[in-house]
Simulated scan of single mutants.
Amino acid sequence: MKVPFNIDLKDKVAVVTGGGGVLCKAFAEALASCGAKVAILDLNEEAAKKVAEDIKKDGGTAIGVAANVLKIESLEAARKIIEEKFGTCDILINGAGGNHPKGTTTKEYFETGDLDVKELTTFFDLDPEGIQFVFNLNFIGTLLPTQVFGKDMVNKKSAGIVNVSSMNAFAPLTKIPAYSGAKAAISNFTQWLAVHFSRTGIRVNAIAPGFFETNQNAKLLRDEEGNYTPRADKIISQTPMGRFGTPEELLGTLLWLVDDGASGFVNGTVIPVDGGFAAYSGV
């Protein structure tokens, strides 16, 4: 991938968690295109290594490393590998996250008769373990990598952390209370970290993507024939630009945030990239 931005990240070491996914793969490729040495971390080692191989074929420098963002010993092992091959971390992208069916309701609106319908998952049926999984994956899965890789970033010149929040953090979507709450926690945590690290040289910001088609939401947005589902049509009707975003449309914001020369006084921000979804009242 060649990005149309004049950002120089030569000799920087970037770590991207969740790097095997659609959006974070694009992040990793963009960072490598700007000269960074990129470590792609993912629970799926094969996916991580595939992204790294694609980057290397394009002339970049990358490695794929298996890592579980919920286990600090796994992250420490990944950190050791990265330090041996590339050096210590300068840029951390906390991209690992996601939702779970057990943290999701069947319907958008609860009605009194729903209590007697066994086929439905109502608010009252939400599984605490499912809720916990979503909060852990998104919040703890951001906190632990920051603890592990953040130590190497203290007092470095131009060190930066970019978390991945969501437009759900601005206004919760129906049916997904766990994911919406977890992403709101990420936005708050981003601000907290920015203040906490502000005397160390580490800047902390977040991107809040709107709706992008990924492997994770494919079944929610398209039916078996590839057509948009009613929920996808509803999303697009509430997005002023009238479409889903593409991963490439996140890259300008990402690279701006990690480049100290371009955004050196930007700290503690959560930037929506959502086609105007959060700004639209629906009328």
Rank of each mutant, 00 (worst) to 15 (best):
L120P: 06
S281M: 04
E45D: 13
D42W: 11
E46A: 14
K107G: 01
A67H: 01
A66K: 15
A185K: 01
L9G: 05
V22T: 15
I93R: 01
A206L: 05
I7Y: 09
N217T: 03
K151P: 01
F212L: 12
I91C: 07
A96H: 10
G282H: 08
N6I: 00
R199D: 13
L144I: 14
D223S: 06
I40F: 11
N94I: 05
A39H: 00
A36P: 02
I176S: 10
N168A: 12
F211N: 13
I72V: 14
I72W: 03
F244A: 03
V16L: 08
A262D: 03
G97T: 13
A66D: 01
A96D: 07
N217M: 01
Q132W: 01
V195Y: 14
T142G: 05
Y179P: 04
S33C: 10
V134M: 04
G181H: 10
T229C: 04
M1T: 13
A206H: 07
V273I: 10
G21T: 12
D8P: 01
T146H: 02
G97A: 14
L115T: 06
G18K: 05
Q191E: 07
I55Y: 02
L193N: 10
F212K: 00
A32Q: 06
I72D: 01
E248R: 11
A77G: 04
G18W: 05
G181A: 09
K85C: 06
D11N: 15
A185F: 00
K37C: 07
G282K: 08
S180F: 03
C24D: 15
F265L: 07
F124L: 15
N163E: 07
T61E: 12
K102V: 00
F197K: 04
V195I: 15
L250C: 08
D90N: 14
G150N: 02
T269V: 15
V16H: 09
E83F: 05
P247Y: 10
G264K: 06
V16F: 08
F170I: 13
G276Q: 06
N188G: 15
P101L: 01
P230N: 13
F27D: 02
A62M: 02
N188Q: 13
A178C: 11
K25D: 05
K50V: 05
K102G: 02
D11S: 14
T142E: 04
P4I: 11
N138H: 04
A171R: 14
Q216R: 12
R222F: 11
N68Q: 10
L120E: 09
G226R: 00
M153Y: 02
G21L: 12
F212I: 12
V270C: 13
G98V: 03
L143A: 14
T146I: 02
A26G: 09
K71D: 15
F133V: 11
G59V: 06
G150Q: 01
S198P: 04
R231K: 07
D259K: 09
F170W: 10
I207P: 03
A66E: 13
R243P: 03
I55M: 04
N267C: 07
L137Q: 11
V266F: 08
S281T: 08
E46Q: 14
E76D: 13
T269R: 11
M153C: 02
K10Y: 00
M167I: 15
I161W: 02
F265A: 04
D260H: 13
I207F: 07
